[in-house]
């Protein structure tokens, strides 16, 4: 029984990681297509990027909900048969059982709330790295002027990667992560201390850092 619970847990974790990765990557693509952060686009055009984001979310949910039809597991009988906490025998789920198949109690191999949170964060970080890597490759093949309009393919190879303006995600609007990282770190070194000092000076007088500063001076 405990072996079965362990296998169930591994199955749930694997499938949830796939779901969370696809959903986070999809949400990221929709988001960066709105804000114009080209450095994280997986495809060379804004509309394509947004459509691809939606497709990734649908794919993720489709996979997670439908794969009990062909993958054997302890798909929950608890939510489809009689409200018992026990799982049924290992096997594939029928179409009628699909809606409740993933509703597994954590004591029977399902995931606890904390596990969902941890695996989501992990997937979101992975999705960001993935988009940054593909975006960098993409940006070198299709530099910014041709990425949102025009014929990307014909102009791609002849153009250089542009110098970033600004830092952080702002700089990713016209270049890629690798280039941005260098300029962001340079900006942080050159202006970071000054920015932080300005922020501290503009804080309202009752904020804790201001109070500590005043106490320190007195």
């Amino acid at each position: 029984m405990s072996d079965q619970i362990e296998s169930a847990a591994a199955l749930m974790v694997r499938d949830y990681l796939i779901l969370a990765f696809l959903v986070s990557l999809g949400a990221l693509q929709i988001s960066v297509s709105i804000s114009g952060i080209r450095g994280l686009w997986l495809l060379p055009r804004r509309n394509l990027t947004r459509a691809f984001g939606i497709l990734l979310i649908i794919l993720g949910l489709g996979y997670y909900l439908l794969c009990p039809l062909w993958i054997e597991g302890p798909w929950s009988a608890g939510s489809v048969i009689d409200g018992t906490s026990e799982n049924r025998a290992w096997g594939t789920a029928s179409v009628d059982e699909i809606s409740g198949a993933r509703n597994l109690n954590d004591i029977h191999g399902g995931m606890a709330g904390t596990a969902y949170a941890v695996f989501f964060v992990l997937s979101a970080v992975l999705a960001t790295f993935f988009a940054a890597a593909i975006g960098t490759i993409n940006n070198r093949l299709f530099p910014s002027p041709s990425r949102s309009e025009g014929d990307a393919w014909s102009e791609a190879i002849t153009q250089r990667v542009p110098e970033p303006t600004g830092d952080g995600l702002d700089a990713l609007k016209n270049t890629d992560t690798l280039t941005t990282l260098k300029s962001s770190l340079r900006n942080l070194r050159d202006t970071g201390a000054n920015d932080i000092r300005n922020q501290l000076q503009s804080a309202h007088r009752w904020s804790i850092p201001s109070l500590i500063g005043r106490m320190w001076r007195n």
Partner: peptide
């Protein structure tokens, strides 16, 4: 805690 969250975001911006 203002501007601690803003400073935190500034540092995150610095690492891209």
């Amino acid at each position: 805690l203002k501007p601690v969250p803003e400073i935190f975001l500034r540092i995150l911006r610095g690492i891209g």
